[in-house]
Amino acid sequence: MYDEQTRAIALAAMAAGESLNAISKRLGVSRAALRDWRDGKVRRSPMSNCPRCGSGTLDAPSYAHLLGLYLGDGCLSRHRREVYALRIACDDAYPRLIDEAEGVVRAVHPNRSVHRVRAVGCTSVMSYWKHWPCLFPQHAPGRKHLRRIELVDWQREIVAEYPELFLRGLFNSDGCRVANWTTRTVAGQTKRYEYPRYMFSNESADIMRLCQAALDLLHIPWRMPRPNALSVARREAVGRMDGFVGPKA
């Protein structure tokens, strides 16, 4: 489908006597469409099912999860005819998370097919749609940590309503649950103690702040051992995280 500006330019060119073949080559419009415009046959575009600019509805819980995955290991790439590919990169070591990523993509846009593209040690969950940028306005050229990442109002509302699912997406992409250890001297003997904690790593300070804010909504304490790494280590906090994130394997 072509936009109204392209149609107006083509009609002006036809009125000026330019040939359909020349207009087709210059504007990238098929000659069949040009003939329809010349003869007054206007094909109406079907109503979009985009939840933002059309008549579609958004599965908000699944979107909160997918937003976390996108900010962690996702990207959009532009293809022909203004179609965008949503790509979520998944580690082959965690097949359950690959299935989960595919499931939330299907839930957010059930009318499109979802593909798996395999590479060495990695599987990309992909879906093509013209309206992915409507759902991810953070999309822009360049790596996420080199540009500003902010949520718009409607995204903030969804994250505020479903912070657990947003955090699940973030930690499933750029986080992990690990076993740490420490030593203590008890009755003159050195004993080793192990304890679990969650780690989230991301080079984007903006994405890190979004993770912190979601944890704050749930009153889950965290600390920053490094500028690009967040830790949740208190026993009660780890127990709460186990309830909605859990180990990847």
Score class of each variant (00 low, 15 high):
Leu67Phe: 14
Arg184Asn: 08
Asp153Leu: 10
Asp39Pro: 01
Leu151Gly: 09
Gly56Trp: 04
Arg112Asp: 10
Asp99Cys: 12
Arg116Trp: 09
Asp216Ala: 08
Ala229Lys: 13
Leu135Asn: 02
Gly169Met: 03
Gly239Ile: 09
Arg112Met: 10
Arg43His: 11
Leu11Met: 12
His79Asp: 00
Ala64Trp: 05
Ile9Trp: 06
Tyr198Glu: 06
Val104Tyr: 04
Val42Ala: 06
Val108Trp: 02
Ala85Tyr: 00
Thr183Asn: 09
Glu100Ala: 15
Asp39Met: 00
Arg177Ala: 10
His145Tyr: 12
Glu161Lys: 15
Ser48Trp: 02
Thr6Glu: 12
Leu135Ala: 04
Glu18Met: 15
Asn172Ser: 12
Asp216Lys: 07
Trp154Gln: 07
Ala205Val: 12
Ser62Phe: 02
Leu34Arg: 03
Cys50Asn: 03
Gly121Ala: 03
Leu20Pro: 01
Glu100Val: 13
Arg26Thr: 00
Val232Asn: 06
Pro163Tyr: 10
Arg112Gly: 10
Ala8His: 09
Ala229Trp: 14
Ala60Asp: 01
Asp174Leu: 00
Val117Asn: 14
Asp39Asn: 11
Asp39Arg: 00
Arg112Pro: 06
Arg184Glu: 15
Pro133Ser: 03
Pro247Trp: 11
Thr6Val: 08
Tyr128Ser: 09
Leu135Arg: 04
Met47Gly: 10
Ser24Ile: 05
Pro247Ala: 13
Val120Thr: 13
Lys248Ile: 12
Arg168Phe: 08
Gln189Ile: 11
Ser127Lys: 05
Ala16Gln: 13
Leu97Phe: 09
Ala101Ile: 05
Ser62Arg: 03
Phe171Asp: 06
Ala8Gln: 14
Glu236Ser: 14
His139Gln: 13
Asp242Met: 12
Thr57Gly: 02
Ala214Glu: 02
Tyr128Ala: 07
Cys90Val: 14
Pro225Arg: 00
Ser113Asp: 11
Arg118Val: 07
Gly28Met: 09
Ala12Leu: 10
Trp132Cys: 05
Ser48Glu: 04
Gly103Cys: 08
Tyr94His: 14
Arg26Asn: 00
Tyr2Cys: 04
Leu165Gln: 08
Ala93Met: 04
Trp132Phe: 07
Cys50Glu: 03
Leu71Tyr: 02
Gln138Trp: 02
Ser77Arg: 14
Ala101Arg: 03
Phe136Met: 04
Ser77Lys: 14
Met241Tyr: 05
Met224His: 01
Ala10Met: 03
Gly142Glu: 08
Thr190Lys: 11
Asp153Cys: 08
Glu203His: 00
Asp36Asn: 15
Leu86Ile: 06
Gln138Val: 15
Cys176Tyr: 10
Ala213Phe: 00
Gly246Arg: 01
Arg177Thr: 05
Cys176Met: 09
Ala89Val: 09
Asp73Arg: 10
Arg80Val: 09
Gly54Ser: 02
Ala32Asn: 07
Leu11Phe: 06
Ala60Phe: 07
Ile88Gln: 08
Asp73Tyr: 01
Tyr193Val: 07
Leu58Val: 01
Phe166Trp: 10
Ala229Phe: 12
Ala249Glu: 01
Pro46Glu: 09
Ile98Trp: 02
Trp181Val: 08
Glu18Ala: 15
Gln189Lys: 13
Arg35Val: 11
Asn180Arg: 03
Arg192Asn: 04
Asn228Trp: 11
Arg43Ile: 11
Val29Pro: 10
Arg177Glu: 07
Pro196Ala: 10
Leu230Ser: 00
Ser231Leu: 12
Arg7Asp: 06
